[in-house]
Design a protein around this nucleic acid. Sequence first.
DNA 1: CACCAAACCGTAAGCGCTTACAGTTATGGG
DNA 2: CCCATAACTGTAAGCGCTTACGGTTTGGTG
Lengths: 360, 360
Amino acid sequence: MTTDPPRVLTIYDVAERAGVSIASVSRVLNGHRSRPDTQDRVMSAVRELGFVPSGAARALSGQLKEVAAVVFRRAADSPDGVFSDEDESLMFAEVLNRGIEAGARARGFDLLMSSVDVYDHSPQGRIGSLAGKSDGLILHDKVLSAVGVARVARRIPVVTLAGTATEESVNVRSDNAFGMRELTSHLVNGHGYQTLAYLAGHVDSPDNVARTEALELVAADAGAEVWTGEIWRGNYLASGGAAVISRILERALPLPNAIVCANDQTAIGVMFTLAQHGIRVPDDVAVTGFDDIPVARHLHSQLTTVRQPIKKLGATAFDALYALITGAPRPEQDIVLPTELVVRGSCGCPFEPAGPVLPS
Amino acid sequence: MTTDPPRVLTIYDVAERAGVSIASVSRVLNGHRSRPDTQDRVMSAVRELGFVPSGAARALSGQLKEVAAVVFRRAADSPDGVFSDEDESLMFAEVLNRGIEAGARARGFDLLMSSVDVYDHSPQGRIGSLAGKSDGLILHDKVLSAVGVARVARRIPVVTLAGTATEESVNVRSDNAFGMRELTSHLVNGHGYQTLAYLAGHVDSPDNVARTEALELVAADAGAEVWTGEIWRGNYLASGGAAVISRILERALPLPNAIVCANDQTAIGVMFTLAQHGIRVPDDVAVTGFDDIPVARHLHSQLTTVRQPIKKLGATAFDALYALITGAPRPEQDIVLPTELVVRGSCGCPFEPAGPVLPS
DNA sequence: CACCAAACCGTAAGCGCTTACAGTTATGGG
DNA sequence: CCCATAACTGTAAGCGCTTACGGTTTGGTG
């Protein structure tokens, strides 16, 4: 046991203890050349003292902070009801963050996480403060407008997820069009469905746009009908999907052959509400999702969906950011990862699940 | 459009633009007294320039970094199988983090998130580096040993979650004993079960210990039997619960009246495996959980469980840390939040769920 | 053994900000 | 109208670290 130094340790304490200059300590700590015995003395001093360099000072003197900030939208509390806890539902965004984290860990970076309220229309302040504390930003979908992104990207490296690339920033997304084409083709050509409803996500999200377009294109080619429009407008949340179906059923509107949901979370709400009304899936209506979020897998859902490589999306985003930060050869402006159709039972295909998690 | 300054802006640029000294700029920015017209000039300059102060410099000159680091264990990948994606299962820890985030947001803090691999037995390095980048640490369960916590806590404020308080650190947990007593009493006194198995979590986690003890106490009082021991040892994961049940059934060991799981995640694995073998819950055996994680609620699980105020636990942890950081009156060493028995169907009580999410 | 290059080290400047201190200007009472 | 006092501002030091620069040591060579 050494005596407790009252204040927090600095590089001077280490230098004194090791009998060298602070410059040498710094050099050893950063792995620059120095004589073996100097290295030893410094390292022992560091170890004995339990010295940890101040990140702030390090960052200030021109070094990297080794921090990447991640900004995502926190779903607002939806009105009371079955899905009222939805902001805790922990689905897509969290898996994405895990992926980012994996990428960051590999480079010794830490992640500064910051969520922005859905209703916060000018998160500039928050994002500015994050920019001051980090080396670069990763922005989830719908955090900032394109011009907002462009502005921030002029000051600090920025990577967007499922957004749109700008002059200065890089975007990472998955191949929505391909996945949706596969899915639609399966529904119209494989199953011969003639009417498909598209239960949309946020109307202006690039992902949503790409999915809609692909769906309409393939359906049109096959001569199938696509229902969209106001009443089929969801919000990527289970509560949104549930609300749409409730409205449809209340008004006794007809159901299509298949309900193509903008994402899995929406599909969960849809299937829940259909079940409540005694409508069977896929017997009465087929339902599909998009994303293949883990919770669906764990629960042995039979949901036919399009798998996005969610974690990899996150990891790729970090890698791109890292390239931007270190000034490595500039990554592509728009990085696209492949998607894959996952056929389970909800589209009408025979599918034998291993068994339900929860007996009913 | 002003001309783009090539380098990143500093307080000097603002001062020059506003025609004042950097000290005045700093004072205005930090809300100290100054003449109204000085304030205006500084604020306009800041706005026009789009100035964002450097967090590093701020932190270095003795200020707060306004960053709290959160460290949690990332579950290792379990062997292939149904639950192989479990590190993505996103349950307890994530909700906790959401709570911490809510607390942090209220104080303008950002969160530096860092996970530690389950197999990493000396995360000192990582934690040291975090300490250098933040004002305080929140450690989830099982991140650091008690002595490890004590050591770190001497350098920087530390709050542990579901751990044990030390001389220097504060612990936040929920009232495991109370919840488990209620649950056990319901099972033995309410249902008259005579044999209960406890499917344990990590054996040395304080939460697990408290739950076991409470269960044994109440059961003993009521003259009921408690089965524990090697074969009933789980790991807080669904895969662990599944493995235990598989082993029991393979060896054709008898089942108790009720399987009391250390947490909900375990219960999910248990129920899954029981269902696979055609064993009905609660008809053949009752099953209970602990935590009341949101996924269970969303899916309208019938799981009888004990609700922990997970989010509040997180928010409380941040508040305690904040108190420590700002030197406010020292919070209690061991903060305990109440728990609540949630009776659904899996214990044998009649329970009418609103309907299954996924038609079966 | 003298000399030169290479390898290493210490000195000191500077990163962008806060704040004690001293200097300046406004305020109000006598 | 003068001066004490209050209110504000600018100057400069310092937070802990990295790194350019020049001095010192080391080791190889003739």
